[in-house]
Design a protein around this nucleic acid. Structure first.
Lengths: 218, 218, 218, 218
DNA sequence: CATGAATGAGGTTTCATTCAT
DNA sequence: GATGAATGAAACCTCATTCAT
């Protein structure tokens, strides 16, 4: 129903959702607070979004869609695989840095458990875009093909997510995107197809358990 | 006050907390539910933990402490840096795989925003252990010293976190720890000091933006 | 906020409050019980009355107001002072007898200490009405003017209160108001201006302390 | 069981009970508070008194017993009926004035409903003492014999109770017992046998309702 | 279609009281 | 016999959500 919503109200709501949910944990953010800030009755919110969760998810979906648009846009004309990935990596850090509220919401305040079951979580457009690039790299023998492309994606995304999170935690001292290059080189190096010439050194002496014996679980 | 708690009650509570909080988002889990499952009075929980948040944090702290103990224990006698890190990486995946509930709680249901401000979040014992190893690797010229050790840690931990998360999301088809080795090789390759002999190839043609223009913000 | 309350709900609440609080001591009466009986949500009660105390006080105030209305109404057209007071006395006994629940609440279950500080306690309309009559009687030389009018009021009200109380305690055998006349004659005789012709008899033999004499007002 | 209690503890408890219960409504007074003030564990209180109610009632019984002792003592040697009653009236006001805490407890904070069912309420020794005097007065034709002696007692006690109560409410400006004499004359005049010589004046013109019609109940 | 009243649920607190030591 | 831990109940309070207007 969201599309029927008066554009002005929608804008005010967007602002309020961003402010409120980036500021406090999901369960602490009150829908009444949002309604008040947006100057809308909370019943109106319910009419259009159905629940507190749906409300956030709806906006998150929009914001993530914009990031995807941006990625699609920027990827145009780049042929080189590494540069494509570098661009994607940089775009993510840059976007979350400039839309810190969004980053806070998706990485810090939204209850993952619930978000996972919402359609806004998958972001298939963005993900398939990236998966395609990664898969292509694997086929070209440039990227590690011992693992599924999904693992490469996790590798990249995990770094993005954790980096954003710690950037906030550490007080946003330096620009996130400014470090994108060094960080991306790590990612690239890590997902590159390991050269046959340099087999794993020092395999001897490993005491890596091969079975799950001798653990010290609680 | 938690330390005074009757051991039996503590055990029942631990079980209930693990079950309830790994099963539902924090705001959906009810303390009344936990009390009932644990066969403990509701008031007792409050007297000892003070709040729903404190309750979970207290147990998370204990569980993370056990993982740390396990890491400390397993690191003994390993001299080789790479093997140390491999072990740490494997231990994490293995621990979260076998204590899936803990993984779900820390990576999926706990409200990060709040957890961050709790002392149980930092896990200084575990983190300093890892940071020390990483820093040592940087000093020996083995690990990338262009970035702070914290970045290397984020690199490793981000992969662990994201991998666990997606493992759950994808239905835990295969063992997480079984993939630990291939995954670790990616991490290791990524954090290794880039060889001078192989400068970044194809630097030309990059269209990496240097200023934050042309964005598509909302 | 009480005035906004839906009339139907208010009525059901009134009934429930009357039943529950007249039946058990204030601290034993539970708001949940009232909510259930009234078929009103617990939260609604709090939203409108703020506390258990405020809830009872609000209704007591209404009920006392009705007694006052009744007194005002019945006093119309009575000129004779004694008959005015007789009427007031009778109206009180009659009202409490027929609204036994109210009597039980104000004289037996309400915590006086707290009620005293509530505005519903003073009942200025009723009290000033009575005080005026008493004062007028004093000015006309009919009623004892050695004491302040307040003392006369206490004299009358104390008898009402105690009589109601004991009537309940003794099992409501006979009608309270049926005895109103004999009882009122006692009150009237007691508050009448003592005739000069009959000084206190038999002053000899008293061992009454003489030091604390002097005055009689409060 | 109270008699087994260490005398020192008992004394400290008495003090605490007096302070706490005279200061706040019964349901607001906390037994933990009492235990703390008395330097006794609250469990000890339960061992000896069984409940919060029993605790107060026990002490009230003791204090009322002392008042009774005093009444018995002072009545010795007084033959004249009026003086006996005057003495009793004065003793009550005097006792409550000097033991204001007791007065507050029995007239203001104790939940009457519950106290009524406790044995400490009846005070048979004190009451029968007074009833005997009143009955004797009725037999001698001095006191009104149109009513049961109990009504005469209510007349006297109602005035005592109400006067104490209002004395507190009005801020204890003047001494209560100092007014005892004037007040007692009212009581005495009121309970005296009405002289046959002066029948109720102006019986005509009364509009005393004989049926309970025309009421304004809620 | 928008609104505020009402609801149900559950977090938080404070007690009186009971239980095991 | 004295104690502190545990309990159950209920006040209190704030929500998300639903309902009637």
């Amino acid at each position: 129903m969201a599309e029927e919503l008066n554009e002005d109200i929608r804008r005010r709501l967007e602002k309020a959702v961003l402010e409120v949910f980036s500021d406090s944990d999901f369960h602490r953010a009150s829908i009444r607070d949002i309604a008040t800030r947006a100057g809308v009755s909370f019943t109106t919110i319910y009419k259009h979004y159905g629940s507190k969760e749906q409300l956030v998810f709806a906006f998150v979906d929009i914001w993530m869609g914009k990031l995807t648009d941006r990625i699609v846009d920027h990827l145009q004309g780049i042929e080189n695989l590494k540069e494509k990935l570098r661009k994607v990596f940089w775009l993510q850090l840059d976007y979350y840095e400039r839309h810190e509220g969004l980053g806070r919401i998706v990485f810090m305040t939204l209850p993952m458990k619930t978000w996972m079951s919402d359609t806004s979580f998958a972001q298939p457009r963005m993900m398939s875009l990236m998966i395609d690039v990664l898969r292509q790299g694997q086929q070209q023998g440039i990227l590690n093909h011992q693992v599924r492309a999904g693992v490469l994606l996790d590798f990249l995304m995990g770094f993005v997510q954790r980096s954003f999170f710690m950037w906030i935690l550490r007080g946003q001292k330096e620009s996130l995107s400014a470090q994108a290059n060094v960080m991306f080189e790590m990612v690239w190096q890590g997902m590159a197809q390991p050269s046959e010439a340099h087999p794993r050194p020092m395999a001897e002496g490993r005491e890596q358990p091969t079975s799950r014996t001798g653990d010290a679980s609680h």
